[in-house]
Amino acid sequence: MRTIVHLSDLHFGRVDRSLVDPLIQSVREIGPDLVAISGDLTQRARTAQFIEARRFLDALPKPQIVVPGNHDVPLYNPLARFFRPLVKYRRYIGENIEPFYADEQIAVVGVNTARSLTIKNGRVNRRQLDRIRERLCDYPDAVIKIVVTHHPFDLPEGYREGDLVGRARMAMEALASCGVDMFLAGHLHVSHSGHTGERYRIAGYKALVISAGTALSVRTRKEKNAFNVLRIEHPKVVLERCTWESENARFVPSAAEYFERRADGWMRMKDDAAGPCRRS
């Protein structure tokens, strides 16, 4: 079995500081095999915010897959935004903006969807898809293949198509033949799970699409601060939501969802009360 902690939308610069240490403690208690962070580490891509984010990452278990979000591109400095959009991200977070991790059970690739020409939207391009295919296609079906982006490939009810990552359908058609099992994202500050069969309708293919809420930001929108824990054991995945409980100042289990891969792809099996947000 492999355990992945999935965090998103940290937004250092607008965080609830009372959550930082409890989040670090919770992740350490879980003892994940991998930590995946799907973008927006900062609020406005400022140096002090990146330094805080770096300190936070250093306190979490390794290895880590970390990708930029649209907030990690400078907004108010046009020169930096268009000519050096991720220079501070590369300096403080990591030179590799599309990292990769693999072992005998999982293969995980991060993809940068942040772009200078839009304020909040993102996209993927063909060169990125070619790199994903080069990294993932040769792995056997027994290895769970995962793509991590900031912008999502699927949406909860009530959101418009424009909130999807740009060129989502082109990407899904290119990656279906590789048998990508799971897409992890953030951006909306809303927890969500589903499968690609409803939106993309590719014959014989259904991948899981999972979004995390914001782990630390005060901009919680429709739900409390939260993060995901994925427990992966081919051909099954358990998704646990860990939600901030202010009364006891800790992250607690709020729900568990069970998925299994069948002949035509991934299916939800049941939902249940979650177990503790620690190593099982």
Rank of each mutant, 00 (worst) to 15 (best):
residue 237 V to Y: 12
residue 89 Y to S: 11
residue 44 R to G: 14
residue 159 Y to K: 14
residue 43 Q to R: 10
residue 97 I to S: 09
residue 124 V to S: 06
residue 229 V to N: 01
residue 70 N to F: 02
residue 144 I to V: 15
residue 239 L to T: 00
residue 87 V to Y: 10
residue 126 R to T: 06
residue 45 A to Y: 10
residue 266 W to T: 00
residue 30 I to S: 02
residue 64 Q to D: 05
residue 203 A to C: 02
residue 126 R to L: 11
residue 140 P to G: 03
residue 34 L to I: 07
residue 26 S to T: 15
residue 195 H to Y: 10
residue 167 R to E: 13
residue 169 R to P: 11
residue 202 I to H: 01
residue 48 A to D: 14
residue 100 F to C: 08
residue 91 R to G: 13
residue 69 G to M: 07
residue 268 R to C: 02
residue 196 T to R: 07
residue 1 M to V: 08
residue 44 R to E: 15
residue 73 V to Q: 00
residue 25 Q to P: 01
residue 48 A to V: 10
residue 264 D to Y: 01
residue 211 S to I: 01
residue 34 L to V: 10
residue 147 V to P: 04
residue 188 L to F: 13
residue 153 F to I: 09
residue 12 F to V: 00
residue 122 G to I: 06
residue 153 F to W: 15
residue 60 L to F: 07
residue 62 K to G: 14
residue 80 A to I: 00
residue 150 H to K: 06
residue 26 S to R: 08
residue 244 W to K: 00
residue 114 A to D: 01
residue 252 V to A: 11
residue 88 K to Q: 14
residue 91 R to F: 15
residue 98 E to F: 07
residue 270 K to L: 05
residue 259 F to G: 07
residue 122 G to N: 00
residue 49 Q to C: 05
residue 89 Y to H: 14
residue 279 R to D: 07
residue 16 D to W: 09
residue 275 G to K: 10
residue 155 L to Q: 00
residue 131 R to W: 13
residue 37 I to F: 00
residue 196 T to M: 12
residue 203 A to L: 10
residue 258 Y to S: 01
residue 187 H to T: 08
residue 43 Q to S: 11
residue 136 L to G: 07
residue 31 G to L: 04
residue 26 S to M: 15
residue 23 L to R: 03
residue 189 H to G: 11
residue 239 L to K: 01
residue 4 I to R: 04
residue 35 V to N: 06
residue 60 L to Q: 06
residue 14 R to N: 13
residue 100 F to K: 03
residue 163 D to F: 14
residue 191 S to L: 02
residue 200 Y to F: 07
residue 141 D to M: 06
residue 187 H to D: 13
residue 155 L to T: 01
residue 92 Y to F: 15
residue 273 A to Q: 12
residue 219 R to H: 08
